[in-house]
Design a protein around this nucleic acid. Sequence first.
DNA 1: AATGCAACTTAGGACGGATGTG
DNA 2: CACATCCGTCCTAAGTTGCATT
Length: 746
Amino acid sequence: MVPSTKSSPVKSPLSSPEASTSSARTSPVSNSKASASLEGQSEQLSEQIKPATVEEESKTSIDSEEDDKPLSSRLRMKPKPQKKTSSPVSGKRPLDEANVSEQSSVKRPKVPDSSASAKNKQVSAKKEAKEEEDDDFITIADRAKKVMSDNKSSVALTKPKKVTKMGSSSIKKTIKKDKKGSNFSKYSKSTNMAPSSNDGQEKWATLVHNGVIFPPPYKHHGVKMLYNGKPVNLTPEQEEVATMYAVMKDTEYVQKKTFRNNFWNDWQKLLGKRHVIQKLDACDFTPIYDWYQNEKEKKKQLSKEDKKALQEEKLKQEEKYMWAIVDGVKEKVGNFRVEPPGLFRGRGEHPKLGKLKRRIRPSDVTINIGKDAPIPECPIPGESWKEVRHDNMVTWLAFWNDPINQKLFKYVFLSPSSSLKGQSDKEKYEKARMLKDYIGNIRAAYTRDFTSKDGAKRQIAVATYLIDKLALRAGNEKEDDEADTVGCCTLKVENVKAIGPNSLEFNFLGKDSIRYENTVEVEVPVYKAIIQFQAGKRGNDDLFDKLDTSKLNAHLKELMPGLTAKVFRTYNASITLDNILNKETKEGDVSEKLVVYQHANKEVAIICNHQRTVSKSHGAQMSKLMEKIGGLQGTLKELKTDLDRARKGKPPLEDANGKRKRNLTPEALEKKIAKTTEKIEKMEVDMRTKEDLKTVALGTSKTNYLDPRITVAWCKRHEVPLEKIFNKSLLEKFAWAMDVDFDFRF
DNA sequence: AATGCAACTTAGGACGGATGTG
DNA sequence: CACATCCGTCCTAAGTTGCATT
């Protein structure tokens, strides 16, 4: 795919290919294809873009009155009907206020984990233990005990962990009024997490695992590619790389010159300078491509049983690598498979596209494991690990150097469902919640500094503002051998256009070469500051020349302990979800509530610019839906005439095929009409959402930005089954959030 | 202060099985 | 039942951040 061509949801589904003007990177190919067939429809379906109407409220500058408003209501990229209601309410939330005052009176401990509720958890966990088909060999109760004792011991024999002050903040949680049927603790396994945050501390006391599994060796297939029309003999090594290229025939990668050049370069090294094959252009890989397609087809044609058997075989081989035992608890390992060799598939215009990513061998791999644990046997006979370490200050189980960029490491970590990951996830959200208490002052401070005499200060202020308001990423410097993308600190002059009287038009490639395109009305001082930062510079110069991420983060740390740029994204995402859910959830059935949730989720995804490419079949799908609706409208018309006739005692007209229809009573016809109308309406809604979400990825925010406790609590309050929102993986990942109080607010 | 290294989180796309639909 | 679409899972790239070194 060509990520850079996606139209940005930040703007609206309407942003057309030609809107993305600048940048040589823009290849309109996929974009125009995707939208061409649909141009007319999408115009009707999607909301109009207007240059962001950041209304009155934000012109009055950000003052503390507005502080707990969700970003989405402070920043209106698209006017939305239902949002009109939001302004008078002014974001005051009784529940939240209670929270805030409570928090400000009690100094928030780093991890306000509630020991009180931990007790509850154990009880409920035990209760549910039976129905949990957790394939652990340790029971939950055992695990709880184990963790408890481990904690004690590790506290005893390691540097004092911050086990202290768990009391104060947890007191509030003792009033546990559980609503009927709203207990999700069946998903919370041992919620008993190590009680402390431990940055710079031991991450585990004991660690046992079986290392990593390597991909099978290459199987020589002997299918001959053609060179100038003639079959060529290749050694297995040469053939392997040729095959990697051949099978990518219908990806967009091979269209890219960089990809082909890099591939050729690396392949030629294997062929040798004097090989018959002298240039890529004269190569015909189709025999290999066809062979591969055929193999794939064969695999697909296997019987259900055979497939299952194959799967089980694989599972059996991998079983031992799937688990680690961390402090006596069996935990899933995340990525225990070593990455197979292949051609590098970078995103966007990555300079290393197509380079051969060589095979990783045991001698590349460093293992990290408990001192007393048996060292994993090297799975390839005759070879051995590069190194074995016993470092409990880190969480990785293994790593090797990335063959594409030797300086980088590829790590093997535990899976997101592990309590190690869960704990840091929780800490992440607690930090973001802490920002709530500081955000007012922070906003006041940067607003003040928009006009600071000190240029560096001004840049920090504006950058912080953009990170807060637009949820931009920090933006580290990048090397020349990476794709040319930017974040806040690395914005170029040409990425921002000042549009009078006080709007800014952003257009740049961010992470994963996803385009960020957005026009926003900003405070006048910001507008002026940007113009001043741009003065006398060229398009490619840094907008913030006195700033980088470490300066920025150092500054943020002075405003709140542990504050960094990315916390703003988490904070704004989660508070937006919390606010929208609580504002917009009405009485109604589950499906209506799910619509509200999805809407909130979408708002967050738009704020964070989480995009996806429009599926190849999107256009076709839409036309199909249109057709269906058209058909239904036809029947509706027919039914209406029939109703008219029936009322006059006449028989229905013949249908389109000239067939006779049954005589129906007017009542029956009315019923049918109502049903059809309903069906049409439902389809129209479906179509609108589909179109609306065609470029928006909801999953990323759900997985990484939205405090799961907001969702869990909301589900409890509104009796929505959690499984409607979290799939199995997410339920596992968020086990730590399951027994949150139903009145939890972010 | 700049640079480099290390460790960890966040990200979109591919793929294949599950589920819905006619 | 056949097909399309949906959805979860896997994969691994691409970020952020903290800290040590120069």
